[in-house]
């Protein structure tokens, strides 16, 4: 499945959060509202960041909180929360974080495809900048679609 199809309806811009926990909870709530995950999964994401530290932060300003499928994933899912104000996760190289991509992985090969596509999307120059500049959720979605049309989905 394409990232744009996965993330459609799961993008929220300028969400207020004062710390990493509020940011992760807001990101989880977004997927909960779509029925993608159960509340236990949001709790697990928070617990993982608390216990394992700042490893959810994978690139400058970008966090990818997730837990295990058995923690409450109903279907493979991905969201995006852009924070009104960046927050610290405790990652010295990549703090502060303004883009939070909550991820719910499935146990099948589809999960690897999503991760591979996401890695390509995030590593393509200009994509993150475009997301940070976007004024509406629809504009963010079109960044994903544009990326896929230009062959980034392969």
């Amino acid at each position: 499945m394409k990232l744009s199809e996965l993330i459609e309806g799961r993008i929220k811009l300028n969400l207020p959060a004062t710390n990493w926990e509020e940011a992760v909870r807001a990101a989880g709530a977004l997927l909960e509202s779509k029925g993608d995950i159960s509340p236990t999964y949001t709790e697990a994401m928070v617990r993982v960041v608390r216990e394992l530290g700042p490893y959810a932060v994978i690139a400058p300003g970008v966090a990818l909180p997730h837990a295990r499928p058995e923690d409450g994933v109903r279907r493979s899912c991905l969201g995006l929360v852009r924070l009104a104000t960046p927050v610290e996760f405790g990652n010295k190289a990549n703090d502060p974080v303004d883009l939070v991509f909550p991820l719910g992985g499935s146990r099948d090969e589809g999960h690897l495809e999503v991760l591979a596509a996401l890695a390509r999307f995030l590593s393509t120059p200009g994509n993150l900048e475009a997301i940070r500049k976007a004024k509406t959720e629809e504009e963010v979605l079109s960044v994903f679609r544009q990326h896929e049309m230009e062959g980034g989905a392969r």
């Binding site: 993982v48 490893y55 295990r68 991760l115």
Partner: peptide, 15 residues
């Protein structure tokens, strides 16, 4: 390696 073995470590592996 990553914290969970289910997210960034898989991304790294594929890259």
């Amino acid at each position: 390696l990553c914290g969970m073995g289910f997210g960034s470590s898989l991304m790294l592996k594929m890259t």
